[in-house]
Design a protein around this nucleic acid. Structure first.
Length: 911
RNA sequence: GCCGGGAUGGCGGAAUGGUAGACGCGGCGGACUCAAAAUCCGCUGGGCGCAAGCCCGUGUGGGUUCAAGUCCCACUCCCGGUACCA
């Protein structure tokens, strides 16, 4: 028997590809580099190498890009198709905390396992270009990019980053001043402080989820709805901390505008635009009686006559200043939380708010809460006093952290106003049929003095002019986008290469000292504390003094002890693949220009979960590198494609925390984990939901080609689908049948004829080539396979495979199932690998049809199907149709009132 | 909540506004076999009918059109993101 022995075939071909370097791709200037070929850069989003290993959801996109890469190799392109590892991250660190095993050891083990699993798929990656973000030779350049950000500022007038040395020159020359102060009037420390405030990487106080018991800041998702830590159930406080920030907001307009340069799904572009959230409006100053001004941002300055109260965020610094010691006479009891004086009431409310996560605060289902500060502002348009509240539906991080509330035109304000008995004044006339509460639509202004009668746009323009003339505010633009919080109190991340001087001055670690390697520590935990006001002491403070303190020119500097977030390494990895071993520069200009070309990466495939954060951060870094002359394109990823997810059951325990799905036991319809009942849910396979399925078992039972085909045949690449092994036998049968069509299972002889196909089989062959080619171009691998199934099924009736079919079919299949295809190719007597063979061409004349099925519709319903010549004219078609018995049964012989012809396929008759 | 996406036979899915359900799984029937597996052949959305054929059918309710799975409006449910999971 010489049946389809997939294990032997797959092992042998993978070995041969490796031995011959079949997937190695030369750079410009290297040996065997062919300048005449077009380039294709086909990129996967690289994985985090988790301890659980690769799961069957990961390779969905990887199989897709591998097929596409192999196809383009066969079409004659230089294809760059690399793979690497996003290997910094929390799980290895948490494992280190629990076991004391260095995260590097865990990470290297996981990378080795991932590499083994990826290679087992037979992917055509150029493994010589593989990188891991944890390699010091890699993160050396991540640190270098950070220093580029630290050493640059954003020139608003040119809308680009420039070296900070050029800012110094312009300040010294008097071409600029420092926020209105001439440079020569600034002293040394003030000069430094000013420059530091201008850098793209800067330090600022920002509110974060601080968990003193864990000694770290937590993500919103790590905070339970009760305001405690997901791990350990410790209290979490929302408080400001000094953190490294990256000035992504400077690029807000370019990040919006330059989306026009890329071929991305419109949905992803929309998500990015919404995330950046550019809105035009005005800042308005409200005098606060006897004190100061409250500056609010509003997108609806035209409604200012309807502002009947004010709200500031709980963190707003003005609260301390304006809150009096006693409630004013006649204060509504609903406004006071039942507390005797405003200071105590406001403090109680702020504490409660600090224990809520940001997400919770934005959930509009929740009943609005708030407290009166006891202070009033004056509406500058109406002259009326308006009470100032603290409420957590206003966020410190957006606009000015304070709003003028206009319940007549804002639903949130309406809701709050009803709850707190506040007056509601409409300033836009709703249509007569309008029945709701707040009216946010178009209409003429009312109750608005000199604005009355104007439409919204005109009223906005008029009021902004008035505000600016009278010094009560100005037109402005704000963004929802916030600067990027870049500090982490973790161990397993890139050390931030900054030294802190005795007077708070910042100094970059010199380039020639990079990489700044992670120090060895005994304890991977940050310092815990019972004091919510304690300053963070990150894990790197556990390093030796020798590492932590550096003396330069007699000055003792302290190293920055925070590390970078995991995003950092994934922001630029696509550039390092181009030139992964270069020790002089991040990437050589020659390699960068060739592989990035005009539009950057030719196809970037990954999950839509990265639609905003990863893709926005990477675009930001790329633009900075472009501004500073290190890369040549404005955008990194010319074309983006989102593959779907493999979905699977997931399980949550009673606290709402996910537990590993593989450890969940089912008995009589109920699910338990370690004896505790758990709830079944459903979602994306992966480490978040702890519901991964390992592919190794699939290889054993069906082989690599079968698993590749199965994942592609489950559905189109961009949709999600539940994992189910039931259908896998279908594609396995396809390969078995293919094998039997080509190989005599008794003798091992090839069953190939010397004659080419004729008749219908020849037509089918060329139609298949055409269809598969189109499908390959469009990543429609499921339908490409359906076509190949049909061709393969048609061969069953033949005693031998016609010579042209034998030549074409393995080549069409090669990108999808490369192992069996190379084996058949080899047995047909060809040398070499199919990845280097030519893609088949089809004969136009063979696929042209001379007749077509014409559908005849009577009053919109299909009543007959008639074979007609493809070039039939309308009068003939109508005559044939009306003569048909089935048609006559529905027309009753009456004359058509109307005929719509889409010949030769459709004839629609109305009687 | 907000932003983005999705819903088609028992199941995965296919369909430039123009024959709904290609292809595969599952199911049913048949051939081969002592038998079973494998393989090969046929049927397979629902209802009515002896048949010819007719009616219904793409999450729900409306609409546009000669014609709607596809376009428009309003819903329902599910999935992704929501800035320290990556």
């Amino acid at each position: 028997m010489t049946g389809y022995n997939f294990r032997e075939i797959e092992d042998r071909w993978q070995q041969r590809w490796a031995d011959h370097g079949a997937h190695r791709v030369p750079n410009p200037g290297d040996e065997h580099f062919d300048d005449a070929k077009p380039k294709k850069y086909i990129l996967d989003m690289f994985p985090y190498p988790s301890g659980a290993g690769l799961h069957v959801g990961h390779p969905l996109g990887y199989i897709g890009t591998d097929i596409y890469s192999r196809y383009h190799r066969m079409r004659g392109a230089n294809v760059l198709h690399p793979m690497g590892f996003d290997s910094f991250g929390l799980p290895a660190e948490q494992y280190a905390v629990e076991t004391g095993i260095h995260p590097r050891i865990t990470t290297e083990k996981n990378i080795a396992n991932y590499t083994r699993q990826l290679k087992a798929f037979g992917f055509s990656y150029d493994w010589d270009r593989s990188i891991a973000t944890t390699d010091p030779d890699y993160y050396r350049w991540t640190q270098w990019i950070f220093l580029q950000l630290f050493g640059a500022w954003f020139d608003e007038s040119q809308q680009r980053a420039r070296p900070i040395s050029e800012l110094v020159t312009e300040l010294e020359e008097g071409a600029r001043d420092a926020d209105g102060v001439a440079w020569r009037n600034l002293m040394g420390d003030d000069r430094t402080a000013y420059l530091d405030s201008q850098r793209l990487a800067y330090i600022d106080e920002v509110p974060v989820n601080w968990c003193p018991a864990l000694g770290t800041v937590l993500a919103n998702e790590e905070v339970t709805p009760e305001g405690r830590s997901d791990r350990g159930n410790h209290p979490v406080f929302r408080r400001p901390l000094r953190q490294w920030m990256l000035r992504i907001t400077a690029y807000a307009d370019r990040l919006i505008d330059e989306l026009d340069l890329v071929d991305w799904p419109e949905s992803v572009k929309t998500m990015q635009r919404n995330w950046i959230g550019r809105s035009e409006g005005a800042n308005i100053l409200f005098p606060v009686s006897g004190h100061t001004h409250l500056r609010v941002f509003t997108t609806r300055p035209d409604t200012v006559f309807g502002a009947t109260y004010m709200v500031v965020a709980p963190e707003h610094p003005i609260v301390d200043e304006i809150t009096p010691t006693e409630w004013p006479d006649g204060t509504n009891s609903k406004w006071t939380l039942g507390i005797g004086d405003p200071r105590t009431a406001v403090e109680a409310y702020r504490l409660a708010a600090s224990r809520k996560s940001e997400l919770d605060r934005q959930v509009e289902d929740r009943e609005k809460t708030g407290v009166f500060t006891g202070a009033h502002a004056v509406n500058p348009l109406t002259g009326e006093p308006v009470p100032i509240f603290v409420a957590d539906y206003v966020l410190m991080g957006y606009g000015t952290g304070a709003i003028m509330a206009v319940p007549g035109q804002d639903e949130r304000d309406w809701e709050f106003a009803e709850l707190f008995d506040l007056p509601i004044v409409r300033t836009v006339q709703p249509p007569r049929e309008f029945e709701g509460d707040a009216y946010t639509g178009q209409g003429p202004a009312i109750n608005s003095g000199f604005l009355d009668g104007l439409g919204i746009a005109a009223a906005k323009a008029r009021i902004i002019q008035w505000l600016e003339v009278n010094g009560h505010g100005e037109g402005t633009i704000t963004y929802k986008l916030r600067d990027w919080l870049f500090s982490r109190q973790r161990y397993w991340g890139e050390p931030i290469p900054i030294l802190h001087g005795p007077n708070g001055e910042l100094r970059a670690v010199p380039d020639d000292e990079l990489p700044l390697r992670l120090p060895e520590v005994d304890d991977y935990r940050p310092h815990a504390s019972n004091d919510e006001n304690a300053e963070p002491t990150p894990t790197l403070s556990n390093a030796t003094d020798e590492w932590k303190y550096v003396e330069i020119d007699g000055i003792r500097y302290t190293r920055e002890l925070n590390t970078m977030p995991q995003w950092a390494g994934s922001c630029w990895y696509y550039l390092r693949y181009l030139d992964p071993t270069n020790t002089e520069v991040l990437v050589s200009p020659e390699a960068e220009r060739y592989w990035m070309g005009e539009h950057g990466v030719d196809l970037y495939v990954g999950g839509v979960e990265h639609a905003v954060l990863h893709l926005l951060y990477a675009r930001f870094w790329h633009k900075v590198l472009n501004d500073l002359g290190h890369v040549s394109t404005k955008e990194p990823f010319g074309k983006l494609f989102n593959q779907g997810y493999i979905l699977a059951d997931a399980f949550q325990d009673q606290r709402g925390v996910y537990v590993p799905a593989e450890e969940v036991v089912e008995s009589s319809g109920a699910f338990t984990h370690n004896g505790e009942p758990v709830n079944r849910l459903y979602g994306k396979m992966g480490k978040s939901l702890k519901n991964s399925v390992n592919p190794d078992d699939m290889f054993d039972e069906y082989g690599v080609d079968t698993l590749r085909l199965y994942e592609m045949f489950m559905g189109p690449l961009d949709t999600s689908r539940p994992w189910s092994t039931r259908d896998i036998v279908g594609v396995h049968r396809f390969l078995q049948r293919l094998w039997r069509n080509f190989v005599d299972e008794e003798t091992g002889e090839m069953l190939v004829s010397e004659e080419p196909a004729s008749g219908e089989l020849a037509v089918l062959l060329h139609r298949t080539i055409e269809a598969v080619t189109t499908d390959m171009e469009n990543l429609h691998f499921n339908t490409a396979m359906a076509r190949l199934f049909e061709l393969n099924n048609a061969l069953v009736a033949e005693t031998a495979v016609p010579s042209d079919v034998a030549s074409v079919l393995p080549r069409l299949l090669a990108p999808l199932a490369p192992h069996i295809s190379d084996e058949l190719w080899h047995r047909l007597g060809h040398d070499g690998f199919l990845i280097n063979a030519d893609w088949p061409a089809y004969d136009e004349s063979l696929i042209a049809e001379d007749t077509a099925t014409m559908v005849v519709q009577i009053n919109g319903k299909v009543r007959d199907r008639i074979e007609v010549p493809v070039n039939i004219i309308e009068s003939e078609a109508v005559a044939i149709a009306l003569a048909s018995e089935r048609v006559m049964a529905h027309t009753g012989g009456s004359e058509p009132r109307k005929v719509i012809a889409r010949l030769p396929n459709v004839l629609s008759i109305v009687v």
